[in-house]
Amino acid sequence: MDEVTESWAGRLLVATPRLEDPPFRRAVVLVLDHGPDGAFGVVVNHPLEVDVSTVLPGWQRFATAPGRLFQGGPVGLDSAIGVAAVPAGRAAPDGVDRIAGAFGLVDLDAEPASLALPGLRIFAGYAGWGPGQLDGEVELGAWWVLDALPDDPFTPAPDDLWSRVVRRQGGDLALRHLWPEDPELN
């Protein structure tokens, strides 16, 4: 695909069973930007065994349960990205830039207490694609592009998110939520 005709910012990329690359196996990615120059997003269902306070002590009490740092993707693992819920019909607070729909990027250099956020996740790294790369992967069947619910990136049960998002689609796609994590064990 040479030209992006529709931005997927604010939508979910859900890895299809044919995508077995370890960072993206059964991944759910919130797309933060998608355009002619490429795309980037964060994997919202891969929590690490690291509390937010280990990296950003002032942000721990604002982080949505389970209060862990999430591996946002394989790129830039030494960087932190904050994603917040920004309710529809409300302006984004200072220190938050709305990206699409109910989601915004948080200025992690801001004073945490100055931001009233109903949902916040901190990610180490991100997923990135060059021009046309993501569109090509979608065309090849590696990803489903699905609508995000405002709570998806902030779920307290991220390990079940892949199945829940697929199941709620209905029809034949919903049946894919039963696909075993390791088909070899079926």
Results as ranks from 00 to 15, higher is better:
residue 53 S to D: 15
residue 43 V to G: 04
residue 34 H to R: 01
residue 66 P to E: 03
residue 24 F to L: 10
residue 22 P to A: 12
residue 23 P to C: 09
residue 50 V to I: 14
residue 145 V to I: 10
residue 74 P to D: 10
residue 122 I to R: 12
residue 92 A to P: 02
residue 26 R to P: 06
residue 57 P to Q: 02
residue 135 D to C: 05
residue 121 R to I: 00
residue 49 E to V: 06
residue 23 P to E: 06
residue 108 L to Y: 01
residue 78 D to L: 09
residue 104 G to D: 01
residue 133 Q to S: 04
residue 130 G to A: 13
residue 150 P to C: 04
residue 176 R to Q: 15
residue 116 A to Q: 14
residue 30 L to V: 03
residue 96 V to A: 03
residue 62 F to I: 02
residue 114 S to M: 12
residue 107 D to F: 07
residue 41 G to Q: 02
residue 150 P to T: 05
residue 113 A to M: 10
residue 175 L to G: 14
residue 3 E to D: 12
residue 82 G to I: 01
residue 43 V to W: 00
residue 77 L to I: 08
residue 114 S to W: 08
residue 5 T to C: 08
residue 164 R to Y: 06
residue 130 G to E: 13
residue 144 W to E: 10
residue 53 S to I: 04
residue 87 P to G: 09
residue 114 S to N: 11
residue 92 A to W: 02
residue 87 P to F: 07
residue 69 L to D: 03
residue 99 I to C: 11
residue 89 G to N: 09
residue 96 V to R: 01
residue 71 Q to P: 05
residue 82 G to L: 01
residue 94 D to A: 15
residue 97 D to E: 14
residue 95 G to L: 07
residue 26 R to T: 06
residue 61 R to H: 15
residue 161 L to I: 03
residue 16 T to S: 12
residue 14 V to K: 06
residue 153 P to I: 00
residue 25 R to F: 12
residue 124 A to C: 09
residue 169 Q to A: 02
residue 92 A to F: 04
residue 100 A to M: 01
residue 14 V to P: 07
residue 79 S to K: 08
residue 103 F to P: 00
residue 101 G to D: 02
residue 5 T to L: 12
residue 102 A to G: 09
residue 21 D to F: 14
residue 8 W to P: 01
residue 37 D to E: 13
residue 80 A to D: 03
residue 9 A to G: 07
residue 53 S to P: 11
residue 155 T to N: 11
residue 69 L to N: 03
residue 10 G to T: 02
residue 53 S to E: 15
residue 102 A to C: 07
residue 113 A to Y: 08
residue 130 G to F: 10
residue 126 Y to Q: 10
residue 148 A to M: 01
residue 19 L to E: 08
residue 133 Q to E: 04
residue 136 G to H: 13
residue 17 P to H: 12
residue 70 F to R: 00
residue 49 E to M: 07
residue 64 T to S: 15
residue 185 L to Y: 13
residue 137 E to D: 10
residue 74 P to L: 07
residue 54 T to D: 13
residue 90 R to W: 13
residue 184 E to N: 13
residue 80 A to W: 08
residue 137 E to K: 01
residue 167 R to G: 04
residue 125 G to H: 05
residue 130 G to R: 15
residue 68 R to D: 07
residue 119 G to M: 09
residue 5 T to V: 10
residue 80 A to Y: 11
residue 91 A to I: 06
